[in-house]
Design a protein around this nucleic acid. Structure first.
Length: 591
RNA sequence: GCGGCGGUCGUCUAGCCUGGACUAGGACGCCGGCCCUCCAAGCCGGAGAUCCCGGGUUCAAAUCCCGGCCGCCGCACCA
């Protein structure tokens, strides 16, 4: 049965609450916009999505390691990252039409004056002096207010240092880059991943799980040497990845008014230079595969390149990965940003730590180094009491430039004192250079877990007559199998059937299968309950089990049943689930 | 944040306009019992509602008024 777009959201919200997927947080106190609880079933599904993500994006190449860093972040870190400045945008509101604008943008548009870094009252002054009005209706604008989308907190309960809840996990990876790099014994390329909560104090969150004030991010910063990226990417590109089909809408196409994505193979993205770095293409292909694997159809996934002004402050190129939903249309579930050296550079600047890495040349390079070394005795004669200042000056000068100037002009002049060649000892020496330091480039794939969760549910949701069936991939399903007794009555044979079903259930739990047991209501009702939360298989113990130790196994999506021996239930399940393991069913305790 | 509309058991809803017999009714779901050979069957019973919150008007408020919270839609914002 075809679902109408309007119904699907209601059906899903109803199901979510009824069966324990998710619901608004703090409901008994009226709720808070943008905050959601995950229920018992939702938590299981969510964890399975994380596992799949870890497999496809983190473990499958051996290039990425996972860390965990705090969500509470000292102010300086987000100052360095540029977030604090980005979040204190001055907002002004029109008193007539109620529209809200970035005050600095309006001022710049109407006066040409750049007010970046101005205080709120200084911007206000400029606005009054230049009679800046509402660009939409010409109405009076209010004094700008800072709109900070970072959650503020204090570190330490008494006279605490200012801090924020992190708006992205990324900064933890940049700040601890050097430690991780050392742990992996100085190897590039290196990805550092993190799965965790972040907070963004959104002005008006809506659309249930799509826009949250607190959500789970799954992302990694991938550090590499840009000069080697092509050859390195080729090393990790296998046939499957090369042939992965991606739907991409480029910025160029967007500005020409095209809104349909075209199909590319991964290799074409690299060769046609659609991506500014080959690693972007590799991770986009992996991300595409991941979403397909958990159940989003390939043609419902696309990549949209962001236009320069749509990009975050740190990004050289960004592709949003979007999934089509019936309720919200195309929603962004992941972003791939080429952050270049932006973040490391900023942390080098603010922390004064050396976050560069050493690159050894294949062969050391011999270089003739010519230096002019100051001769203190001669300089004292020439400089007299200016000696100290001159020496300080010389040591801060670039060696090569000093030498060049001295040789071409015959002297250098510092603080009014001419120093000729005789004031220096000229040295020429051959130096072996074994390598150089550089700041690695970074590509960042970043996934929003709750959005993926929502998109997945929407795609999995189907109606069979008026029954809901959540057709999710068995690997994502909250439970792998349901176990039922066909009947649960009071006759002796009913008791036997129930006992066998219960022991089967317990044996499966012990074998680390996530099993679900239910004996309430009719068998049809129990199948329906299991279908609603997406349990892919159901094992039913019936009368025939008493005779020949066989049970039925039913597949959720087709309701097909086959009869198997109860002893091979585990192996059959593993086969269906594509898992491996061991299983022992102990019948002895039950009659 | 602005404007419009809305908020009654877990869910969907009746009641609100026209204040009073509303101890807030129903359906589905949930729980217990009976029944029991495969897709939400039936019968019996049960639990379950701060009528979103606070204030006001009134002899009397789910109902009228004001403020707040939350939701939906539009505008704005969105790393």
């Amino acid at each position: 049965m075809e679902l109408k777009s309007r119904d699907i959201y209601e059906i899903l919200s109803d199901l979510a609450k009824r069966r324990g997927l998710f619901w608004p947080s703090y409901e008994i106190y009226g709720g808070v916009a943008g905050l959601y609880d995950f229920g018992p079933v939702g938590v299981l599904i969510k964890r399975n999505i994380i596992e799949e993500w870890l497999y496809w994006l983190v473990y499958s190449t051996g290039l990425v390691v996972e860390i965990e860093t705090p969500i509470i972040t000292p102010r300086i870190v987000l100052k360095a990252s540029g977030h604090e400045d980005h979040f204190t945008d001055p907002i002004t509101e029109c008193t007539k039409c109620g529209r809200v604008f970035r005050a600095d943008h309006v001022v710049e548009e109407q006066t040409g004056i750049t007010v970046e870094g101005y205080s709120m009252s200084d911007i206000w002054k400029v606005m009054i002096e230049n009679n800046v009005r509402c660009p939409e209706c010409g109405g009076q604008l209010t004094k700008p207010q800072p709109a900070l989308l970072l959650f503020k907190t204090e570190i330490g309960p008494y006279k605490g240092a200012p801090g924020y809840i992190r708006p992205e996990a990324a900064q933890g990876m940049f700040v601890s880059f050097k430690n991780v790099f050392t742990v992996v014994r100085n190897k590039l390329p290196l990805g550092i991943a993190q799965v965790g909560k972040v907070g963004r104090n959104e002005i008006s969150p809506r659309q249930s799980l799509i826009r949250l004030r607190e959500f789970t991010i799954m992302e990694f910063e991938f550090f590499f040497d840009p000069e080697k990226s092509y050859e390195e990417v080729m090393k990790y590109m296998d046939e499957e990845l090369e042939e992965e089909e991606l739907f991409v809408l480029t910025a160029d196409e967007k500005s020409r008014g095209i809104d349909r994505a075209s199909r590319y193979r991964t290799l074409e993205l690299i060769e046609e230079k659609i991506v500014k770095n080959p690693w972007m293409a590799l991770w986009m292909a992996k991300g595409n595969r991941f979403l397909r694997e958990i159940g989003i159809p390939g043609d419902k996934i696309r990549f949209e390149e962001k236009l320069p002004w749509e990009r975050a402050h740190y990004s050289e190129q960004t592709f949003d990965q979007q999934v089509y939903t019936r309720k919200f249309g195309w929603i962004e579930v992941a972003g791939y940003s080429y952050r270049t050296t932006y973040d490391l550079d900023r942390h080098i600047e603010f922390s004064r730590s050396d976050l560069s890495v050493f690159k050894r040349y294949k062969k050391p390079v011999e270089k003739l180094v010519r230096r002019a070394i100051p001769n203190p005795i001669k300089i004292r004669e020439l400089a007299k009491d200016k000696m100290g200042k001159i020496m300080e000056n010389i040591s801060s000068m670039d060696q090569e430039a000093l030498y060049q100037e001295l040789m071409s002009k015959g002297y250098i002049e510092i603080d009014g004192v001419k120093l000729g060649r005789e004031a220096f000892i000229i040295k020429e020496e051959k130096v072996k250079i074994h390598g150089e330091k550089f700041v690695p480039h970074v590509v960042e794939p970043s996934f929003g877990l709750e959005r993926i969760f929502y998109a997945l549910l929407e795609h999995a949701l189907s109606l069979e007559k008026d029954r809901i069936v959540l057709k999710i991939n068995p690997r994502i399903a909250p439970y792998q199998v349901a176990v039922f007794p066909l009947v649960a009555g009071s006759k002796p044979e009913h008791r036997k059937i129930v006992d066998i079903a219960r022991s089967l259930y317990r044996a499966l739990l012990k074998a680390r299968i996530r099993a679900f047991y239910d004996e309430e209501g009719s068998i049809g009702r129990r199948y329906a309950r299991a279908d609603e939360i997406g349990i892919p298989f159901a094992l039913t113990v019936d009368y025939q089990t008493l005779e020949d130790e066989t049970i039925t196994i039913r597949y959720r999506d087709t309701r097909e049943q086959i009869r198997i021996s109860i002893h091979e239930a585990y192996d059959k399940l593993l086969e269906l689930l594509n898992y491996k393991g061991k299983f022992k069913l102990n019948f002895d305790k039950y009659p």
